[in-house]
Design a protein around this nucleic acid. Sequence first.
DNA 1: TTTCGACGTCTTTTT
DNA 2: GACGTCGAAA
Length: 675
Amino acid sequence: MELASFLNQQQIAAVEHREGPLLVIAGAGSGKTRVIQYRVLNLILNGVPPERILLLTFTRRAAKEMLARAAKQDPRCGLVEGGTFHAFGAKVMRRYAAVLGVSENFTVLDAGDAEEAIHKVASNLGFYALPKRFPQKASLQKILSAAKNKALPLARILEFDYPNFVDCAPELERLQGEYAKYKLELGYFDYDDLLLYLKLLLSQEPIRQALTEEYHFLMVDEYQDTNQLQGEIVELLGRGRGNVMVVGDDAQSIYGFRGAHHENILNFPQLFPGATCIKLEANYRSTQEILNLGNQVLDAMPHKFQKRLTSAEDLHGEAPSLKVFKEPSDESNWIADQIQELYHEGEPLREIAVLFRSSHLSFQLQTEMAKRRIPFEVHGGKKFSDMAHVKDLLSYLKLLANPRDELAWNRVLMLFPGIGPKTAGQLTQQALASPGFRGVHEVFLKQPEKKAYKSDLLFLSSALVQASEQAQSIADQFLTLQKAYTPLLEQRYDNWVQRAKDLDSLGQIAGRYQSLTQLLLDFALEPPERGVVEVRGIHKEEDGHVVLSTIHSSKGLEWGSLFLLGMIEGIFPTAYALRNDEGLEEEQRLFYVALTRAKQRLFLTYCHYGFSGGITQFNKPSRFLGMIGLHPQTEPGQAAGQGAMAKPNKPPIAEPAKALSKEEILAQLQLMMRR
DNA sequence: TTTCGACGTCTTTTT
DNA sequence: GACGTCGAAA
């Protein structure tokens, strides 16, 4: 392999590093992904069996992409174990389930499930009947999770982030313990547990040794965004052999809210004495004009990072610009106009992205893009499985996988008219006490005849019996349950047609699985995103689609042309972050991440008027704009906003290939009306 | 015991 | 706009 033809000296040093700890500080756009990819390849070419390598990344997508690229040069790279800490935790827990005294088919709770579970425990403890105001279930989940991820006592979390609930500390302490007990009894594990129990297992010396014997080489990407617990896991896995490579950039730490501890990266040399440290500084991504903005943000960082971004190939291009609009609709229109213009100038759609601080900022733009038939995909924000009807059907599947899933029973039973929390709770207990779905069917048969929901219950139990007893593929089981759910769907939702389509997509995904447990695990650990929007009638498939993404979800990615919208004080930086210095510093790093995603063109926008709480407000420009010395361009007619119409002389990206049928029009309308 | 309507509150980022 | 709470009616 002739590395020197496409890697620089520092990159080669990292790629060729074999034994011993290695810290790679990789600035934005410095090719760290390539380094990881080639190091995997290099190790394998030098005789390391792929199954001895463990690559831990932030998202499964990141791991898969890196390994897929490496596999192009040597298919063995595809055999490397790669994924998130959480997925790895689940895998190890499954292997050592007996040690923990739980079933191998334990259930992983996603954030929403965890909220329900916490809510249930808190209700059982009577905390909602208390005279004082008690946090809502979502806050409870966040508080308990923060305590675990930041490895801090509850009181600290409350004092710091939830001062209004400080007086609930005793109840929360109690809740924390009861919730842990509840989960263990029922075989539930939330996200935090996957890390916590992984560490717990690794603290057993025989297990730790078995795992270090299995994985001789550990690589961790985005190390600046690992939390304390993850840092300890890395230490345990690396102890002994010490073949640990971590890669990260302290200036890009943006997950502090989740407990990310960017000191991890600074402390690495102490944790692994004798660590080699390599800095990748040359930037291969962006023009110097864009990097200059990034440098100004770096300069303004309170914790000085010894960094300067320099374009390695002396790339130059357009100066980044700021556009100001009157209203959000003008902002969306202008961005859509620009995207069309860029496309006609030859920029492929896949090289265009729009970033924003929070996902709701993109709703208007989504509508505009759909209207103009510009294909796009949304990253970040709500997940497919956050939709109520998807959760409902997933609960049916959970029952099938585990008939003792209390939360799933409760959710499913509550769907029937006439069944509220009380009845659902009683029926759940009876169902849990019955052997198998046939037993449940017996129980339902014994319900008093006068109850209107009796026939519904029997319909449900019959479907479950049918799905569980006949040797069926997952696709068939899914269909059986979907058929059982559909009457409820039509009853509960006016827009059930659209929702039914979501369930069909769920069925498509489910059909690809051999194991129900694996399906549910994947949905919990890496839920599919909601916003894949298909727009038909596109001429060139290979142009791909525009990406609309939260800044967080844009981590590690790059685009030729980048828009950053909503540069408004209180939105970016978000008002929540302004309570303390740490929060503001993280917003600033987030801004740095956003700017450095751009390769050639960068446009920032905001608008004067916004609405929140039904009131139209006058927005202040983000303080970050001043930080990079970017001032609005006042092109006449451009900035004032020209109303909702696209310029007539500009052809749409794709004319419909043929006249649309009524059904297609309705489908399009529904797509646009969905928000 | 459930359901429905009225009203108040909070509204970020993700595994 | 989603979610929770409260009171009243079914």
